[in-house]
């Protein structure tokens, strides 16, 4: 009970420190923004890497997320947790980036982009076992898996975000799980 109370106090104290920091950023304090970046950049980068399966794209989008955050942080009104809002902003920017950078050949013949190759995955540092498998997934299956299983979006929300039918989102999720299981068991 004492531990619970201690944890609850620590959580409240963390949240109020975060609110205070965001308040300073909203006032245009760049030092506070640097602190906010230091606290959240690893989370944002991890999400970008999982969605984009490309280290360079993930770096570009992480930068873009924080630049937009600086200009748009006044839109954060505190109705949800800051990390939840930041994840939603990151997901939207990453999906939009993928659409814009779709390879010309993919646009012409509508082929699906395959996942990251084994060599590139080996070069990425700090990946856990699941990340290594997720990055190998083909694009649509990967996006749906990350948004649903990792980020907790419902298939209805994913269908809107990715412009696909709800049924397609569900089938891509099952496809992803099947591939992941196959790779996991054969490793």
């Amino acid at each position: 009970m004492l531990i619970d109370a201690h944890q609850a106090f620590a959580k409240t104290s963390d949240e109020s420190a975060c609110e205070e920091l965001i308040g300073r950023v909203q006032q245009g304090d760049q030092a506070a923004f640097a602190q906010l970046y230091a606290q959240h950049n690893r989370r944002v980068y991890a999400l970008c890497l999982r969605l984009l399966a490309d280290r360079h794209y993930a770096e570009d989008v992480t930068q873009e997320v924080f630049v937009q955050l600086w200009y748009k942080i006044s839109q954060f009104k505190g109705q949800s947790k800051f990390t939840t809002w930041l994840h939603s902003v990151t997901s939207n920017i990453a999906i939009s980036y993928l659409r814009k950078h779709k390879h010309w050949l993919q646009k012409v013949v509508s082929i699906e982009k395959s996942g990251m190759d084994e060599t590139s995955i080996t070069l990425c540092k700090g990946l856990n076992g699941l990340d290594k498998l997720v990055l190998r997934l083909p694009e649509r299956a990967r996006l749906v898996f990350v948004l649903h299983a990792v980020e907790g979006y419902r298939h209805e929300e994913i269908s809107t975000m990715l412009g696909m039918a709800i049924g397609s989102s569900k089938s891509q999720y099952h496809r992803a799980r099947k591939l992941l299981q196959e790779w996991y068991e054969n490793e």
């Binding site: 970046y37 950049n41 980068y45 770096e59 600086w70």
Partner: peptide, 21 residues
């Protein structure tokens, strides 16, 4: 999925952000 969801970028991305803002 229960593990902390963080990966350190290999490059320092802050200078680009600082330049842009």
């Amino acid at each position: 999925l229960a593990q902390p969801s963080e990966i350190q970028p290999e490059k320092d991305l802050w200078p680009g952000i600082e330049h842009a803002i």
